[in-house]
Design a protein around this nucleic acid. Structure first.
Lengths: 200, 200
DNA sequence: GTAAAGCCGTATAGATGTGTACGATTTTTG
DNA sequence: CAAAAATCGTACACATCTATACGGCTTTAC
């Protein structure tokens, strides 16, 4: 198989795996079920990924890469920092509460070994948080906020933004929000954030 | 078996089930494994609970009852509302980030049917949130806060309090916090909360 | 004290998952 | 075009889980 076709096939399989997992849960997403749904043989799955956990590890990694790219795009935009913050908020909620991230968090919660959870944290929070801290620095220098320190401001922003939405999505009691709902929530969050961190 | 002994045995089994689940994940916590660990027969488990999901549903319910009792105790205390808020914060973090709640949230995340998640939400958030809203009303009447509305204040308080701690616990990247850490976190949260909602 | 009921341990049938193996077919390589 | 490599479909051995059943023992009820 040519390299490009193989890459395409891999991401196809990974996408199917996530869909199976979404419908039948992590335990229901057996290698056999995934292989059938992807019209692949389980031998190929085992050859390519080793086992189920590593398959999902791959998915976590590629999802993290996509997410980071989406956020970096917002950060690289030539906009004033307050607009970048708004854009980041929208994109983060869209990513965090979307089907992919929710399915992966469910998988991590199901995985007793903790490896999936560690990978999610490594590709997610540990990568994103520093960017938010830097953004807070930019906001502070622009005189838009006056927090105790940038890290605290980042924590507050993320807490206000995400709240218990993620947990509710993961345990299945909250449907995926629409784009409009996300925008409204970001709006409210920003008001609260500036009220909390704004200059006196 | 006398009623009291039976109740004791039930809670014993449920506690063992949670421990097995904690160590081996939701899939690993089969009825057989739980029965062995509890020195019970699986026939008894099936007779008493029907199936695995209903066993965990029972656990969710009794855990919710315990949690509600713990919070009500804080609410009933004859203290000024700001002290009650602090106490509530501590107790909620203690409950939410403790082994029991985390294990149950993991089970809910693993359960594709969504029934466990629904039960958790029903016994948890849906019961607790109104209490916090009322508490916010008391704080407002005492002139300690001046929020847009009590519900919004409750949301902000909970968001600042919990942040992403719960998610990080559930995916296994955060160890259980000590009592000291909880107290410190509540302290910081309250400062932020009053800064956000305090009277101008 | 005796009968009835309940629990434990073990056994069972049926279903499903894991990881490997092997021809048949397709795709790549040269 | 031919050889080599990889994939698919199917099959397999082995393990485990679910849900039920039954004899042996203990506890409850009368």
């Amino acid at each position: 198989m040519r390299a490009e076709r193989k890459d395409k096939r891999r991401s196809e399989i990974e996408s199917v795996a996530l869909e199976v997992m979404r419908q039948r849960g992590y335990e229901g997403a057996s290698m056999l079920n995934i292989a059938k749904a992807a019209k692949a043989s389980n031998e190929t799955l085992y050859r390519w990924y080793g086992d189920k956990q590593q398959l999902f590890l791959e998915i976590v990694k590629s999802n993290a890469a996509d997410a980071e790219a989406a956020l970096d795009k917002a950060l690289a935009a030539d906009l004033p920092p307050e607009n970048i913050l708004e854009e980041m908020g929208k994109r983060m909620l869209h990513l965090l509460l979307g089907e992919r991230a929710v399915a992966l968090n469910r998988a991590a919660a199901s995985d007793a070994s903790g490896h999936l959870g560690a990978a999610i944290a490594k590709g997610g929070r540990e990568r994103v948080f520093p960017k938010i801290v830097l953004l807070m620095g930019a906001l502070r220098k622009a005189g838009l906020i006056d927090p105790p320190d940038d890290e605290q401001a980042a924590m507050w922003f993320l807490s206000l933004l995400i709240g218990d939405l993620q947990t509710r999505r993961v345990i299945g009691t909250l449907p995926q929000p629409t784009r409009t709902q996300i925008n409204e929530h970001v709006e409210t969050t920003l008001q609260a954030f500036y009220r909390l961190c704004g200059p006196r």
